[in-house]
Write a protein that binds this DNA or RNA. Structure first.
Length: 861
RNA sequence: GCCCGGGUGGCGAAAUGGUAGACGCAGAGGACUUAAAAUCCUCUGACCGUAGGUCGUGUGGGUUCGAGUCCCACCCUGGGUACCA
């Protein structure tokens, strides 16, 4: 039936769209290269994970928006790069492999093919010759290379640490992948397990990542989230002597001004000094509490509703300023990973300490009072105020008091200013198969010395100043980086995709790959078959961890610039030309992780001279989520999923593009409405019928004279569409096109030139229909490169203005006046307006307000 | 709890402090048609009415000649974050 409709009115999107997609592809319309004659513009979409479910209705939202910007910039004379690729490592492919036994690469390739076909059907202006795939060895070769650079510069290290282990997924998860004690993917329960892990020193970059946020044109909420995630705080470290011990306890506090209010210290149960300090009498309790804490997950531990727990160590510290004895406790509300893992507790001015003090009957000493008497006195009082009970500091305000007390501590060498961050180092290894292998080999101490002393050894290329090693059963293993000629280090074939019994990645099953011999001098690497080796040879075991999915997306914006470059991650010439994406669009769910990790890597690559800019994404935009018709998030279980293929099949890609943009503001969360789509279906059909009608009936005129009102509307529309595209207000741009069409349709005759301009305005939004009608109206080449219309300032000038008349702010009428008529004359005309006159009768005019060419307001009494 | 967004017709939404509801959906009436579909035209915030008026942007205050827009307090809702000392 739908087909029948289309035949009747002549508009057959399926044919038109196929025709132009083929044309663009054969013509290479969107293939770009560096061109110094035109300004460059780089548009980047967050590349998709090619899931087995195929394209989601949310994908075309961001892609259409960026495509509109792309096509607009091309028409406006820019050399525009708009690439696409696949973030194809990841868990679902691995789980599929576990279930079916087929190599994840096979499944991934199928998914990629499907995604590519689906995306192509939407007619995006993408340079497909630059397509990248993070699982392509030629791609991950450079991911590994960047890792080795980080390693060389001391930014990668190994650490045995309790990590999130998901028994269901049989994998380690990063903190960020655990939400409320469950895995972000799959929502399975997780637990703590100590495992040897690779960690990247992102904390070295905390300050830079924080500072440089300021200059980025990003949504404020995203900047705020990153800022909060980095979590910088300024405070002081204070050292407390402990009675009967030489060791001191160092605490971190942001409230030195409350130092006279300390009533006890708290160490995290994991604090290294706990065992030493605990008195014999308390040791049993302390041991029990430590054990209990260890068994708790972080979720349980950080559950605020649980109430405070803790035990005394029996030991006492001495107050650095008063010498008073202060009991030392341990409690799990103090985290080992933040600050120094120890705090000074001031119950009067900290909610957590207050709760703890109440429970264990510890003293509450008030040392800060509200500045204004009017503030209700209630403890704990956690704001700044005026000091009391603080000896010579009494009467000082909190802020100057902090400085004064800190100075005093510094003089006694008992404290100093300190800055702390919430940001933790980045846990960079996964015990999985489907990820980039870490290009490291473990050797014993003697062999490592051999390598580090052989200055000509290829293994020196990425050798760090400080060796990286780990100890197991008293034996140390040292990390040797592969040479760049060994890259890519390919994923080996494995007989089984499950982790090994020791919790090691499935790569541990690839025994031939795993155990190797290295020639220190030649750099040769071969399987270790057990035969005797010469002097230049050492034996090693490969690292079996793989990298997390974030790795590939940390630098993909660079690979697009020279996707086939085989001498560097990015060709320096291409990098200098394209620099950063001028526009980056993707979901707000990546506000912290991807965007922070990518900034970290890019900053690092800047420092080692690979790129010329410190920040990767100067301008960022988040498209909102499209909900199901019921207002809920689309999901299979709710049965409210809208499939883009269905929509394209029924109405065509132009309609889907236009409708997704017309739904509402791009950044807003908004529900899909299957009835609402009729509006844009009709609009496009009217566009077609009107153009074809005019063309066939000879209503297009060659002369450029036409109704002044319509002509002005055209120029207003040009201006509005331009502005709206640049500000990503695409819904209102489409409204404007509808308004313009409505007016043009009512004309008897219309200049062909005007019709063509309309098509140019429409082209970024609905490119296929625009191309087809452009051609039918005599356009000789593709509409893509025809210069985007510019509004004529003179045509925008109005000769008359509509002035609104108000009495006491209420609308009473309107008058049409010649533009810029003198105020006196406007007011006279206004007073004569019958409706206004009626409301002015018997009243005294107190004030007359005139907003030029817009409004008159009489204030009467 | 804390930090951000957002509350406008039956629905999606527009509105540099200056005519609230553009544009579209849905609805009503009409035209065309043997009929239906499609298309086109008119109406469509609420209330009272003949004209015309009154009320209306989550609630209550405030600033202003004038507030959806600015300020204060509160309610609801979406998101982020969570013992970070």
């Amino acid at each position: 039936m739908d087909k029948c409709k289309n035949e009747m009115d002549g508009y057959a999107p399926a044919e038109v769209e196929k025709k132009w997609q083929d044309f663009w592809e054969q013509d290479g319309t969107f293939c770009v290269r560096e061109d110094d004659d035109r300004p460059k513009y780089y548009v980047l979409d967050m590349f998709p994970y090619p899931s087995g479910a195929g394209l989601h209705i949310g994908h075309p939202e961001g892609y259409t928006a960026s495509d509109i910007l792309t096509r607009y910039r091309i028409a406006d004379g820019y050399n525009v790069l708009h690439p696409m690729g696949w973030d194809a490592f990841g868990l679902p492919a691995e789980q599929h492999a576990l279930q079916t036994g087929t190599h994840p690469a096979i499944n991934t390739a199928q998914n990629v093919d499907r995604f590519r076909a689906q995306i192509r059907r939407l007619g995006f202006a993408i340079d497909w010759s630059r397509e990248i795939n993070t699982t392509d060895p030629e791609y991950y070769r450079w991911t590994q290379w960047i890792f080795l650079q980080l390693f060389k510069h001391g930014l990668a290290y190994v650490d045995e640490r309790p990590v999130w282990w998901c028994p269901e997924l049989r994998s380690v998860l990063a903190n960020e992948e655990v939400v409320n004690g469950r895995s972000e993917r799959g929502d399975h329960p997780v637990e703590r397990r100590p495992l040897r892990q690779w960690v990247l020193r992102i904390t070295n970059y905390a300050e830079k990542l924080l500072k440089q946020l300021e200059n980025l044109d990003w949504p404020d909420s995203t900047k705020r989230q990153q800022k909060a995630w980095i979590g910088r705080s300024e405070g002081a470290e204070i050292d407390f002597a402990v009675e009967g011990h030489r060791e001191k306890i160092r605490v971190y506090t942001t409230r030195v001004d409350t130092i006279f209010g300390i009533s006890y210290l708290v160490l995290a149960p994991e604090h290294p000094l706990v065992s030493q300090l605990t008195t014999v009498a308390c040791s049993e309790e302390v041991a029990r509490y430590k054990k209990m804490t260890a068994a708790k997950g972080d979720l349980e531990r950080t559950d605020l509703a649980k109430g405070k727990t803790g035990v005394s160590t029996g030991a006492c510290a001495l107050h650095p300023l008063t010498g008073k004895r202060i009991p030392i406790w341990i409690a799990d509300y103090v985290l080992p990973t933040y600050g120094t893992g120890a705090i000074m507790a001031v119950p009067a001015h900290d909610e957590r300490d207050y709760e703890f003090a109440q429970k264990f009957n510890l003293p509450v000493i008030e040392v800060v009072r509200p500045k204004h008497e009017t503030v209700e006195k209630k403890l704990p009082f956690c704001e700044f105020g005026v000091l009391c009970n603080s000896e010579e500091f009494d009467g000082l305000d909190s802020i100057p008091a902090k400085a004064a007390i800190l100075q005093c501590l510094r003089e006694k060498n008992m404290g100093r200013a300190a800055v702390n961050y919430k940001l933790r180092d980045w846990l960079f290894s996964r015990q999985r198969y489907w990820g980039e292998p870490v290009p490291i080999v473990w050797v014993d101490k003697r062999d490592y010395e051999k390598i580090s002393q052989a200055k000509a050894s290829p293994f020196q290329e990425f050798l760090p100043k400080t060796p990286i090693f780990f100890e197991e059963n008293g034996v140390r293993s040292f990390a040797v980086p592969l040479h760049s000629s060994h890259l890519p280090l390919l994923l080996p074939e494995v007989p089984d995709y499950h982790p090994s019994d020791g919790g090691e990645s499935p790569l541990a099953h690839a025994t031939k790959w795993l155990h190797i011999s290295l020639n220190v001098m030649s750099g040769q690497v071969k399987a270790d078959d057990g035969e005797a080796l010469g002097d230049d040879w050492v034996r090693g075991r490969r690292e079996t961890n793989t990298m997390p999915q974030w790795a590939g997306s940390c630098w993909y914006h660079l690979r697009y610039l020279s996707p086939h470059c085989d001498s560097a991650p990015v060709d320096p010439k291409a990098e200098r030309y394209w620099q950063n994406p001028d526009f980056y669009i993707g979901g707000a769910e990546h506000a912290v992780l991807h965007l922070l990790y990518a900034r970290f890597w890019h900053q690092f690559l800047f420092e080692i001279g690979v790129v010329s800019t410190p920040e990767p994404y100067p301008r960022l935009f988040h498209q909102g989520i499209i909900l199901g018709e019921d207002g809920n998030k689309m999901s299979k279980s709710r049965g409210n999923v809208v499939n883009p293929d269905t929509i394209v099949g029924r109405y065509g890609a132009d309609t889907l593009r236009l409708y997704e943009m017309f739904l509402g503001p791009l950044e807003a969360v908004k529900p899909w409405d299957s009835r609402g789509i009729e509006g844009v279906v009709r609009f496009l059909r009217r566009v077609w019928q009107w153009f074809e009608g005019c063309r066939l009936a000879g209503k297009f005129t060659e002369k450029n004279d036409c109704d002044e009102v319509v002509e002005r509307l055209l120029h207003e529309s040009i201006q509005k569409v331009r502005n709206d595209i640049e500000n990503l207000q695409l819904n209102t741009a489409i409204s404007q096109l509808m308004i313009l069409l409505n007016h043009m349709q009512s004309q008897e005759k219309i200049p062909l030139q005007m019709g063509r301009t309309f098509l140019q305005l429409l082209a970024p939004f609905a490119p296929h229909i625009a191309e087809e009608l452009w051609q039918r109206c005599g356009g000789t080449a593709s509409i893509v490169r025809t210069p985007f219309p510019k509004a004529d300032g003179e045509k925008l000038l109005q000769k008359t203005a509509v002035v609104v008349l108000q009495v006491n702010g209420r609308l009473r009428g309107e008058i049409h006046i010649p533009m810029d008529l003198a105020e006196r004359d406007v007011l006279r005309l206004a007073r004569c307006h019958p409706a206004v006159e009626a409301h002015l009768a018997d009243r005294e005019i107190v004030r007359e307000i005139y907003v030029a060419n817009r409004l008159v307001n009489f204030v009467v009494r």
